[in-house]
Each structure stands twice: as structure tokens, then as C-alpha cells.
């Protein structure tokens, strides 16, 4: 087995890529995908600690995270669908109706 630190750094990088996606991409769908990357990074942490500490709680919690991720995607895509219905685009630059 490789040290837990290496996996942690990996998941940190994955999380960073996800954050980058959310920050720099303007396509709502890609931003949602980047959110999924971040969720996965968190999950990897949970799993690796579950193994390191020999505890089940990490795996159980990972399942809940997946559950939340699935819900988030379903609702997120529904919102994007509604936005697209109203504005005809998924570029978030166009959704500036609240800007003063």
C-alpha cells in the first residue's frame, strides 16, 4: 500500500481541478461536472481514511455523499433546463438579471 499522504495530495489536486472548472468555465453544465469532480475528491478522502483507520464510517459516509451528489445533479440539471427554457442558453454570463 502506498502512504495515505500521496492519496490525499492526489485528491487535493482533483479537488483543485474541480475548483478551477467552476471558477473559469462559463458553461453551466461544465461547472456542474466540475462540482462532481470535487465531490469525488472528497469521497476518495473518505475512503482512504476508512482504510487507514480501519473504520466503516468512511465508506458509509461516501455512500451518503454519492446520494447527495446524485440529488444535486438531478436538481442542477433541472435548473439548467429551466434556465435554458427561459433564456435559450446555458452560458452563465447571460444570467445577470440581478446585476444592478
Amino acid at each position: 500500500m502506498i502512504p495515505v499522504t500521496h492519496v490525499l495530495v492526489f485528491s487535493m489536486i482533483l479537488f483543485g481541478i474541480g475548483v478551477t472548472g467552476v471558477l473559469i468555465r462559463r458553461n453551466a453544465l461544465i461547472m456542474l461536472m466540475s462540482l462532481e469532480l470535487m465531490m469525488n475528491a472528497a469521497n476518495i478522502n473518505l475512503i482512504v481514511f476508512a482504510r487507514q483507520l480501519d473504520l466503516l464510517a468512511g465508506q458509509v459516509f461516501a455512500i451518503f455523499v454519492m446520494c447527495v451528489a446524485a440529488s444535486e445533479v438531478a436538481i442542477g440539471l433541472a435548473i439548467i433546463a429551466a434556465l435554458f427554457k427561459n433564456k435559450g442558453t446555458v452560458q452563465i454570463d447571460h444570467f445577470n438579471g440581478l446585476k444592478g
Binding site: 499522504t5 495530495v9 487535493m12 489536486i13 483543485g16 482504510r51 487507514q52 480501519d54
Partner: peptide
């Protein structure tokens, strides 16, 4: 990422268990 990586490497997590019994 770099800051957190430094923190991770500095944290003593202990050795990796070869076998995990509970899981």
C-alpha cells in the same frame, strides 16, 4: 494545493495497515 500538500506531508498519519479487518 501546494500549501495543503505541505501540510499533509507534515502530518503524522502513521503507517498504513497491511490488512484491514473490519472492512
Amino acid at each position: 494545493v501546494i500549501v495543503l500538500a505541505v501540510v499533509f506531508f507534515g502530518t503524522p498519519f502513521g503507517p498504513v495497515p497491511e490488512t484491514v479487518t473490519h472492512i
